[in-house]
């Protein structure tokens, strides 16, 4: 089975490194690119057509919610998972726009229950495919 590819987008390089490590080492993905804002997200999706892209919401230039809409408008089958500290209706809004999952920050990679939830969220994206 081919290794799945991912693009990770977050305005924090510190967090990108953690997320990339997790996808590469724990989830067995090949992270093919990373970006820092919503503009990067759309452009990187066009270039790489990854199996999955993760988006932060609060980012400069173009936020993750806008990038989500733009990506799905152009690529309706895109698998987009939001990774964000935004609370409230953001999760429902993103899911209604077509996001396949929503992971709340902080990313507690030392917490086994959190790691399990994270893995299940990603696994669920591909469950019906």
């Amino acid at each position: 089975m081919a290794v799945k590819t991912a693009v990770i987008v977050d305005d924090s390089k510190f967090l990108i490194k953690q997320i990339v490590d997790f996808f590469n080492k724990q989830l067995g993905f090949d992270v093919v690119a990373t970006g820092n804002d919503g503009n990067d997200a759309v452009e990187l999706y066009r270039i790489h057509r990854p199996d999955l892209i993760t988006l932060d919401i609060t980012m400069p230039n173009r936020d993750g919610m806008e990038a989500l809409k733009d990506i799905l408008n152009e690529f309706p089958d895109a698998n987009v998972v939001m990774i964000s500290a935004v609370r409230g209706n953001a999760m429902l809004e993103c899911m209604s726009f077509g996001a396949k999952g929503y992971i709340e920050k902080p990313l507690k990679f030392s917490d086994s229950a959190f790691v399990q939830d994270f893995k299940e969220t990603i696994s669920d994206v591909f469950a019906d495919k």
Binding site: D11, S12, F14, L15, A85, V86, R87, G88, K105, P106
Partner: peptide
């Protein structure tokens, strides 16, 4: 900056806070 971002979110996770102030949307 990421600590700040997460701290604000984690404060909102407290029922005592959100019942009084609701959800706050964060800036950069």
């Amino acid at each position: 900056g990421e600590v700040a971002n997460n701290y604000c979110a984690m404060i909102i996770d407290h029922n005592e806070f959100v019942e009084q102030f609701g959800i706050l949307n964060q800036s950069i």
